[in-house]
Each structure stands twice: as C-alpha cells, then as structure tokens.
C-alpha cells in the first residue's frame, strides 16, 4: 500500500484497501435485486423521464378512486355503498394495468438482455432462479401497489362517508386478496413475453397484444355466446382463455366477489377449474422464465 501524501490541499491517495467487511449471501443479494427491480418499475433510481409513465399511470388509478370516494361522500344521503365495488376496480381499470405491465416488464428484463449485462449477474453469487424470482417479485409487488393504492383511497372515502366499517373492511380485505392474484398473474405473463425479445418496443407491443387482444376477443365471444346464443356455461368456460377474465373468475368463485366478466365460471366445477388454471398459469410463467434464463447465451 502506498503512503498517504502529507501535503495539505491535496487528495490523499490512500492506496488500495482490502475489504474485510461482511459479504452477504444469496438471499440478501436476491433481496437487493428485488428492491432494485421494484424501484425500477416506478422509475426510481433511473433518469427522470423513466418516472413519467409509471407515475402518471399510478396517478390516474388513484384519481379515479379519489373521484369515487368523493362521490361516496357527497352523495352520502342517496347512496349507501361505493359506486364501484372494490373487487371490480381492477377489472374496470384494466387498461391502465395493462399499459403499466406492457411498459415496465420490458424495462425490467429487456435492458439486461439487450446490453448483455446478464453474464455479469450470473458470474456473481446469484443463481439464475434467484434472478428470476427477484425480477418476478419486484414487478408483482409494483403491480400490487398500483392496484392497492386506489382501493385504500376508496376505503378511506367510504369510512369518511360513514358506511358500515365492518362491511367495508371485509370487502376491502377480500379485494386485496384478489389484487395479489391479479398482480402475480399479470406480472408473470408480462415477464414471459418480455423475456422473449431484447427489443423493448416489440416487447411492449407484444405484451399489450396478449392482454388487450385476448380480452377483446374473449369478451366479445362471451357476449355473443351468452346473449345471442344463450349458452351461459360455455361463455363462462371461455373466461379461462384471457388473463383478466381468468382472475376475475377466480375472484368470483373463491372470494365471492362481484365479477365483471361477461359470464362467471359455470358452477362449482367451473370454479375449481378456474382456481387450478390460475395456479397452473402462475407456475407455468415461473417455469418458462427459469427455462429462458437457463438458455440465455452468455
């Protein structure tokens, strides 16, 4: 080690110092990557421009909830419950959720693929499954926050409007469980699609297509089959084929929520299938992501 120079006003070159401090293991490192991904989903820790879109979307989500809360308070004499139930909020605002996933899933994955930073991660004490878990968890948490913040706003509004606290709390908690499932499913599907291409623009377009097109197609088909053909059961089964109707059906059957899809899962058998498919979808996304990163060229 070189001696420190003793001249005043000069930066001391204290030479190279060995590091004797703690070296955190895999779990802590994965957690650090998780919080990095979560913050990145909202543009924190990156340039100013990357914050614009996620914050704007969060703002719009909360604004709508705020308006509903205000309506609840202002019209307290007329209405005794919220205009839009908690559990239906996600379905109704799915466009915003879709744009958020479409924009931020590529931000999470495509950068590392495009700039080939991935080998730097895997030459560190971080296993590939840790990387996947951290990214998946980060985006799912970000989506959970996006979906929960408006519900809390509505809840506060409902309490201020003196709606029955017990009922509101119960409804809110059930809806929160539903948002967990929405967050995980949407994050999973979005990340799988994003991991397929290092091009961010294509990733965004592909994710949007998967969500929006599947919803438009399935919803229309459900409408036609339920109302013009009269087969509500078949219409219910079709709900398995699009992420948003899948989770909505899950909510309806498991949490007794008021569904917004055109047709609910048909009977108890349908409900069980919806639950199984939901979990299978989550598992499939996890497996596909791990497979993708096992095969990534380094």
């Amino acid at each position: 080690m070189s001696e420190p120079t003793a001249r005043t006003g000069v930066i001391h070159d204290i030479g190279y110092r060995k590091y004797d401090g703690p070296r955190l293991g895999r779990a802590r490192v994965a957690r650090a990557l998780y919080s990095h991904s979560l913050r990145g989903a909202y543009g924190l820790g990156r340039s100013g421009r990357s914050k614009v879109l996620p914050m704007m979307l969060l703002g719009v989500m909360c604004l709508v909830a705020f308006i509903i809360a205000v309506i609840a308070n202002v019209g307290a004499g007329i209405t005794s419950e919220l205009v839009l139930p908690y559990s239906a909020y996600t379905f109704t605002t799915q466009a915003i959720l879709t744009i958020f996933v479409a924009a931020q899933a590529p931000v999470s994955l495509s950068r590392d693929l495009r700039f080939r930073t991935v080998p730097l991660y895997f030459s560190r004490p971080l296993e590939r499954s840790d990387y996947v878990l951290a990214k998946f968890g980060g985006l799912a948490t970000a989506l959970f926050l996006l979906l929960t913040a408006p519900l809390l706003i509505m809840y506060v509004g409902a309490l201020l409007a003196e709606f029955p606290a017990g009922r509101e709390t119960g409804d809110l908690l059930l809806a929160l469980l539903g948002t967990v499932v929405f967050a995980v499913v949407f994050a999973g599907v979005g990340l799988v699609v994003a991991s397929l291409t290092p091009r961010r623009g294509l990733g965004v377009a592909a994710i949007i297509t998967v969500f929006a097109l599947s919803f438009a197609a399935i919803s229309t088909l459900q409408g036609i089959i339920r109302y013009e053909v009269g087969n509500a059961d078949l219409a219910g089964w079709l709900g398995l084929l699009s992420p948003v109707t899948l989770v909505d059906g899950f909510q309806v059957w498991v949490l007794d929520a008021s569904g917004r899809a055109v047709a609910p899962p048909p009977g108890d058998a349908g409900g069980v299938v919806f639950v199984l498919v939901t979990f299978a979808a989550i598992g499939a996304c996890w497996a596909l992501l791990n497979l993708r990163y096992r095969k990534v060229s380094i």
């Binding site: 297509t209 097109l213 438009a216 197609a217 919803s219 229309t220 409408g223």
Partner: peptide, 15 residues
C-alpha cells in the same frame, strides 16, 4: 357485425 366491430376493427387493426 358485433364480432368484427369489437375484435377486428376495435382491437386487432389498431394493434
């Protein structure tokens, strides 16, 4: 008409 309007023109074509 409903199907083509809702799926083709409203969703597929813009995408």
């Amino acid at each position: 008409a409903d199907f083509l309007g809702a799926v083709a023109v409203a969703a597929l074509v813009p995408l």
